[in-house]
């Protein structure tokens, strides 16, 4: 494996500094929301994680297209890495959302469009790994994985749109109190929100890069063995 690039080291250090910094900013410098109380603060990392996950999946689709065009294995490593890290961020978004929903909506799970779409996306991309594990050659894994990653990312808007439409047409069965936990953000909240978004995007890049290097290393090992 090639030596660790300086830029990656910079990403590592920045992530290690900025995550605690963002956490401190959120915990001590953002106002406590009037109705929901402290639990609302989970929101900053929750949305950022969902954003990073989505970004990872989109990137995986783009990298898949890159593989199909160039047929270079490096694109496949990127696609695979982005999906794995995207899955982790998606899981974080779902879990933190559930913890927020429990006191606010009085239930762990709501069949809300965003929540349901995220859960379906997790299932779609779990299937990606099942598909890969069933294929024998790295070439087939890369080629079919790329096709699947592209088709999957294409259906995500359709899924989201269909579930949202489903919800708006149906009568609301469980009323969720206080406009479903909607609130207005103050300038300080906005600042913390955008910093969290930036930090999680950086973290996504950092983790994907590390996972990519692992894929490279594993491939080299296999070729030598």
């Amino acid at each position: 494996m090639s030596k660790k690039p300086t830029l990656l080291l910079l990403f590592d250090v920045l992530s290690l500094i900025l995550i605690p910094a963002a956490l401190i900013l959120i915990l001590f410098f953002t106002p406590v929301e009037r109705v929901m109380g402290p639990v609302q603060k989970v929101f900053y990392f929750h949305v950022s994680a969902a954003w990073a996950g989505m970004l990872g999946f989109i990137f995986a689709g783009v990298a898949g297209a890159g593989y199909l065009i160039t047929r270079r294995q490096t694109w496949d490593w990127l696609s695979l890495s982005a999906i794995e890290v995207g899955l982790v961020f998606g899981l974080i978004a779902i879990l933190s959302g559930m913890i927020w929903a429990q006191p606010i909506w009085n239930t762990w799970w709501v069949w809300d469009p965003r929540l349901t779409t995220t859960a379906i996306m997790e299932l779609i991309y779990l299937a990606y790994f099942i598909l890969r594990s069933g294929l024998d050659t790295p070439e087939a894994r890369a080629r079919l994985g790329a096709v699947y990653a592209i088709v999957s990312v294409g259906t995500v808007p359709l899924t989201f749109f269909s579930i949202r439409l489903f919800r708006t047409i149906h009568p609301v069965v469980i009323t969720t109190g206080g406009e479903g936990g909607a609130f207005n953000m103050s300038p300080r909240m906005l600042l913390a929100f955008f910093i969290s978004l930036a930090v999680f995007t950086l973290l996504l890049a950092d983790l994907v890069w590390h996972r990519y290097r692992l894929a490279e290393l594993q491939t080299q090992n296999k070729q030598e063995a």
């Binding site: 995550i19 956490l23 406590v32 929301e33 009037r34 109705v35 929901m36 109380g37 402290p38 639990v39 609302q40 603060k41 989970v42 990392f45 929750h46 994680a49 982790v88 899981l91 974080i92 879990l95 933190s96 913890i99 927020w100 429990q102 006191p103 606010i104 973290l203």
Partner: peptide, 21 residues
């Protein structure tokens, strides 16, 4: 008066950072 959801917040951040870790 905001709801007292301090424990939920701690649980939330613990889970987020825990999964990442």
């Amino acid at each position: 008066m905001p709801a007292n959801t301090l424990n939920d917040m701690i649980l939330g951040f613990a889970v987020i950072l825990g999964v990442l870790l």
